[in-house]
Nucleic acid binder design. Structure first.
Lengths: 128, 128
DNA sequence: TAACTGAGTTACTAAAGGGTAACCTATTCA
DNA sequence: TGAATAGGTTACCCTTTAGTAACTCAGTTA
């Protein structure tokens, strides 16, 4: 598990440590659209390996952005969802995405942003 | 120099690649307060090594967030400043910092954020 | 003349992050 | 009975990131 530092010079670096993993914003995005099971996420993001998926989800869970619920059925059903605090990150991610999209356009970088515009607005009503 | 990917799934990952270096947000903050020379930055952030300072500044410059100006005097004077595009990142960094500060308080992480509240407002008039 | 300042560069090393492939346990489907 | 699905774990490897220490070169100050 990625350990956070005990002290930061700036909270921005803390945020980067929390969401900087290669797949984390993508996972937060998909979980944001609704709760998902482990293999459901794998099918949604076919490029991610089981190891990375477990690892990134465990870190998001350990840091309180995602919740992991095991339904004790047979077979057990494991469901991942975002926490309230995780959901409060949404507007921030949205802002980052907007600026990033502008940058990408200016620099001619190909982009397929999940967190931009319309998709975000669709979920805006979820926020308190 | 850190090379950006030619394609991103999400602009947030691009933003993280741009500002994710260990010292970058701190440098952006200090340059935001006003132009600075190389050794001036070293004195402001004594923990940073010459190598890391050069490297992080070069990357910020290469990515268009910071401008490096050599005044051809004897001895030459090298001045670093933020670009217009870099300055447009300010509100985003501010938002990240606010959420990060909340998180740190909740989790009892010690914080000494540069980009929070009053300090930012001081510079807000700089934004178009 | 020696040491200091400014603005770096270079070689080497250690730690973190990410990826591959094989393995595991239990249940259900054909 | 064999294969597939769910939800992982483990060992190993390579790449990226960060840090140390030594070196450069020109001009200035004591």
């Amino acid at each position: 598990m990625k350990e956070l530092q005990s002290e930061y010079q700036c909270a921005i670096n803390l945020v980067i440590d929390l969401i900087g993993g290669k797949w984390k914003v993508l996972l937060l995005w998909h979980l944001n659209e609704g709760d998902k099971r482990f293999n459901e996420l794998r099918r949604t993001i076919p490029e991610i390996t089981k190891k990375m998926l477990t690892q990134q989800l465990r870190e998001l869970e350990g840091h309180g952005l995602v919740k992991r619920t095991v339904h004790e059925e047979v077979p057990p059903r494991v469901v991942y969802s975002t926490t309230d605090f995780g959901r409060k990150l949404q507007p921030v991610l949205y802002g980052m995405c907007q600026w990033g999209d502008d940058y990408a356009e200016k620099e001619g970088i190909q982009m397929n942003s999940c967190w931009t515009g319309r998709d975000f607005m669709k979920n805006k009503s979820d926020l308190s």
